[in-house]
Amino acid sequence: MGKHVLLVEDEVNIIEAISFLLSREGWQVDTHSDGATAMETIRAARPDLVVLDHMLPGKSGLDILTELRADPEFQSIPVLMLTARGQARDREQAEKAGVSRFMTKPFSNIEVVTAVRDLVQLAQ
């Protein structure tokens, strides 16, 4: 039985690509594209893993991550963060905020799939 992944991303084509990849692996993929309302969705959906874009309209991925880690319920939820900015500082900040895995766009498909699998296994 596949696990539940929530993808928070605002680029439609990237949403489609990641959804396609993870669904094919047997994951249940929900998507959300607005940063400002992402927290409510996560709380409601209670996914096994969150794939989080760094730059989102409304609220940044980093802020969402920080909020998640501050919530005891989501303290240990695996979070895979994706960024297109590619700055070393962003990675540092994300790691400080408690990111599980940080990846720079463009990524290779196999990388994303492996990372999601590893993170969920590790969490169990």
Binding site: E11, N13, I14, A17, I18, L21, A84, R85, G86, T104, K105, P106, F107, S108, N109, I110
Partner: peptide, 12 residues
């Protein structure tokens, strides 16, 4: 990087 991500992902 954003359009390149889509290009890479879908071409893969």
């Amino acid at each position: 990087r954003t359009p390149m991500t889509s290009i890479r992902s879908f071409s893969e």
